[in-house]
């Protein structure tokens, strides 16, 4: 990732979010990514069986969201950790 001239993050990280349709913190996380121009891939675990199994196996828990930033898992929308992993100041 790198910062462009206007100081906003220009994120080259691979970001995935495992989410469900009405999850507040999932939606807050997605709003946050949009606000900071972070490209992400969303996996709706209520309909995507493979992603659901992957999330449960990797995170060892069943709460959403689970966010994967370059392979690092963040359980819940832990904003300070997301900031750190994305290099957002």
């Amino acid at each position: 990732m790198w910062f462009n001239n206007n100081g906003s993050v220009n994120n080259m990280a691979t970001v995935k979010i495992y989410s469900t349709p009405w999850c507040t913190f999932c939606r807050m996380a997605k709003d946050f990514f949009k606000e900071h121009n972070v490209t992400y891939t969303e996996y709706d675990v209520s309909v995507d069986e493979k992603s659901r199994a992957e999330m449960l196996e990797r995170s060892k828990q069943s709460g959403v969201p689970v966010i994967d930033i370059d392979g690092e898992l963040v359980i819940g929308f832990d904003k300070s950790r997301v900031f750190t992993l994305l290099g957002i100041k």
Binding site: T24, F25, V45, S46, G63
Partner: peptide, 18 residues
């Protein structure tokens, strides 16, 4: 066991229990 089977937000985590 919070978030490991025990939950307080059904709209968030209910859809995981397909």
């Amino acid at each position: 066991l919070a978030n490991k089977g025990v939950h307080y937000c059904v709209t968030c985590d209910g859809p995981v229990y397909v």
